[in-house]
């Protein structure tokens, strides 16, 4: 398994990424890479810069220094066509961010029609396929405010899938959910992982990270403390910080 993964091409490579807000340095030189099919889980305490890192990856934030490569091309190269670049990298937000003024179906058709320039029929067919996949097909006519949190997040995942992105970024996709809804969202993500969809997931669901990720990254205070296979990070951490963090989380 590990051997096979090693041959996959690198989709994202982050090289000494730094990001400051004013004189507050939030990312202090982050390095990692994501191969095709990888499920990368980023864990770490609140405030350690996980969200900022994810937002830098699709240029919702502009890095202060360092470089991010997409298919080995620096993404500053995509600056001129940032929209096209973003369409190849999906994002699922903690607060869902479904378009409040449209139905579930329209949420999933908007990008394919306006960004991928698909015709309506094709976009609808695909949207229905992915909504069915996340178990939200019965609600295609619903408006976002009529859905539960877990349902919203599953629609948000379908919306991302409809764009056929090469990577999907998840920022704490279950943190805003009531406990009983966490499972339904994680089940969808787990299935996506098994289908080989490349994902980068910021999460506090340690069991999920341990069981589903192919690589786990532990962050603290804007730096990557260690990264590796989930087995190693969870059962054999080299840093005392990692051990301490995990002890706190796994116990709670």
């Amino acid at each position: 398994m590990a051997e096979k993964k090693r041959k996959e091409e690198i989709v994202i490579r982050v090289d000494d990424l730094k990001k400051s807000f004013g004189n507050h340095q939030v990312l202090k030189g982050v390095d990692f890479h994501v191969r095709k099919g990888d499920v990368t889980c980023i864990i770490g305490a609140s405030g350690s810069g996980k969200t900022t890192l994810l937002r830098c990856l699709n240029l919702l934030e502009t890095p202060t220094s360092g470089q991010i490569y997409f298919h080995e091309q620096p993404i500053t190269k995509y600056k001129m066509n940032i929209e096209q670049f973003r369409s190849r990298m999906g994002m699922v937000f903690q607060s869902f961010n479904l378009f409040n003024n449209m139905s579930v179906l329209d949420n999933c058709m908007l990008g394919p029609i306006h960004v991928l320039k698909k015709n309506k029929e094709e976009a609808r067919e695909e949207a229905e396929k992915y909504l069915e996949k996340v178990g939200m097909h019965p609600q295609i006519n619903a408006m976002p405010h009529q859905l539960s949190g877990g349902q919203k997040q599953r629609v948000a995942i379908a919306r991302a899938l409809c764009m056929h992105p090469e990577v999907i970024l998840f920022d704490e996709p279950t943190s805003a959910l009531d406990p009983q809804m966490v499972g339904e969202v994680l089940a969808v993500m787990k299935e996506m992982a098994q289908e080989g969809i490349t994902m980068v997931i910021v999460t506090h669901e340690m069991a999920f990270a341990r069981d589903v990720s192919t690589k786990t990254i532990f962050m603290k205070d804007g730096s990557v403390v260690e990264q590796g296979s989930p087995e190693r990070i969870f059962y054999n951490p080299t840093s005392p910080y990692t051990a301490e963090f995990l002890a706190r989380f796994m116990a709670g």
């Binding site: 996949k133 097909h137 609600q139 289908e195």
Partner: peptide, 15 residues
């Protein structure tokens, strides 16, 4: 809203 009756609610299908 009205439920769409044709779909199934299972987490099945393929990407």
């Amino acid at each position: 809203y009205s439920l769409e009756s044709t779909g199934s609610t299972e987490l099945k299908g393929e990407v």
